[in-house]
Design a binder for these strands. Structure first.
Lengths: 214, 214
DNA sequence: AAAACCATGTTGCAAATGCAACAATCCGGA
DNA sequence: TCCGGATTGTTGCATTTGCAACATGGTTTT
C-alpha cells in the first residue's frame, strides 16, 4: 500500500491522491510466490494487472500441450486481457517467475472515465499510455525476432537487443535456456545445436547464462 | 480537414474543438498515391501518423535485401516511431497499399500535456489509448501467428483469425499471396506448396483470394 | 499488338528444423 | 547428505523449409 507513486502508472500523483483513486477504482493487491499461477484462463475478468514487484511470464498453452512464451514482464509492467488478446481457444498462463506483488484495477475505471472523474485521472491515463507504448515496443521487438526465418537469425536478433540493453557485448540471459527456446518459439535441442555451431563459427562465447557477442 | 470527429482518435470531440487542437498541435495532412512511400527511414521525426483513408503496410528491409511485413494498417490506425520501435539498423518502409490520406501530429503534443492544455486533451489521450490497445491486440495476434513452428500452423492460425473476423468460414485474403508470405515471414514457394497440401488434406478450399476453412 | 512486368504456380535439392530418446549435470527439499 | 526433479547437453533421423530456377497467366505500358 506504500509508495505507488514510484511506479510508472502512478508517477506524478501524490500519495494522498493515489489513496483516493485506489478506493474509487475498487482495486486490490495480491502477493504471489515464485512459480505460482496468477491465471490460467484466457481472461481474468475485467482487471488490469500492474506488476509492482517480481517478474512474470505470459504463455500460451496449445491443445497439444506445447507451451510458447508470449511475453516476459518485469518492472512495473502491465498485463491483462485488453493487452493480451482473448480470441483464442487456447489457455493463457500467467506465471510468476519470482515472488510477485500485483495490483489489480478494474479496467473500465481506467480506460473509461469514471463518473466521479477524479482530478488526477487524466494524469493516470497519460501514464498508462506510456506503459502501453512500452508494451507496443516490446511486442514489436518480439515480432522482429520471430520474423527471422532461421534459429540463428532469431538468436542473433535477440542477443543484439540484449546486448544493446546492457550497453555491452557481454550480458546475461534473463532466463533459462529452456525458457529461451520457448521465447524464441523454436525446438530446444535444435537451438542448443545452433548455439554450438555459432560458437564454432566464432559468433559468440558462452559460459552458462553469460553471453558475449563477437 | 472535414469531419475528423468520425475518426477514432477524435471521436467525442466537436469539430470546432478539433480545429483548435489541430492548430495547437501544429499538425498537417498529406495525401499519398498507391505504392507511394511515406517513409523509408527507421524514423520520420517526432510525428504520429493517423491514417484517415486507405491502407498502408509497415515492413522491415534487411541488409540482405529481404523484406518482412511487420504490420498492415487499415481504417483509422496510427503509426509512428513510438509504436514501431527504432532500435534496429534496418530500414523501415512505410508503404501505401492504396491511395491514402494521413494526418501527422507531433507526438509530444499528444503524449505530453501541451502547455496550453486544451480542454479536450484528456479525451484525446483517452482515444489514443483505445487505438493503442487495438494495436497491442493486433501485435499480440501477430506474435501468436509467428509463434507457430510450421508454415501450416501459421496459415491455420491466421486463417482462423480472418474467419472469426468475417464471422464465416468463407473469407477473402486481405492481400496477395506474395504479401501473405511476407506477412507470415515464410518462403513464398514453400507456402504455396503447403497450401496445396492443405487442400489435399481437406483442410481448406481456395479460389484465388477467396478462402474457405473446412 | 507487342513488350514488359508482376503475381501465381511448380519442382528438385540441399540445408535447417523438429522430434524423440538419452546421458550428464545442477539444485532444492526431505 | 542423499534423493528426485529439472535443466543442460548430445545425437540420429524423418520431415519441413528455404532457395533457385523456371513456366504460366494476367495486366499494364509503350
Amino acid at each position: 500500500m506504500e509508495n505507488l507513486s514510484k511506479t510508472e502508472l502512478f508517477s506524478g500523483i501524490s500519495d494522498e491522491d493515489i489513496k483516493e483513486m485506489l478506493v474509487c477504482f475498487q482495486s486490490f493487491q495480491k502477493n504471489y510466490k515464485e512459480k505460482e499461477t496468477i491465471s490460467i484462463h484466457n481472461s481474468f475478468g475485467d482487471y488490469i494487472g500492474l506488476l509492482l514487484e517480481g517478474c512474470i511470464s505470459i504463455s500460451r498453452i496449445r491443445m497439444d500441450g506445447s507451451l510458447d512464451m508470449l511475453e516476459y514482464i518485469e518492472d512495473s509492467g502491465i498485463f491483462g486481457d485488453v493487452f493480451t488478446f482473448g480470441n483464442q481457444e487456447d489457455a493463457i498462463l500467467v506465471l510468476c517467475e519470482q515472488d510477485c506483488r500485483v495490483l489489480f484495477i478494474e479496467k473500465h475505471h481506467i480506460i473509461k472515465r469514471c463518473p466521479n472523474a477524479c482530478l488526477h485521472h487524466s494524469k493516470l491515463v497519460e501514464n498508462l499510455m506510456h506503459l502501453m507504448a512500452g508494451k507496443v515496443m516490446r511486442l514489436t521487438e518480439k515480432v522482429d525476432i520471430l520474423s527471422h526465418r532461421s534459429i540463428r537469425g532469431k538468436l542473433l536478433c535477440y542477443f543484439r537487443i540484449l546486448s544493446a540493453q546492457a550497453g555491452s557485448p557481454v550480458f546475461p540471459l534473463p532466463f533459462s535456456l529452456m525458457a529461451l527456446a520457448n521465447f524464441l518459439c523454436v525446438d530446444r535441442s535444435a537451438m542448443m545445436r545452433e548455439l554450438k555451431k555459432m560458437k564454432e563459427d566464432g559468433l559468440l562465447e558462452r559460459n552458462g547464462k553469460m553471453m558475449r557477442l563477437l
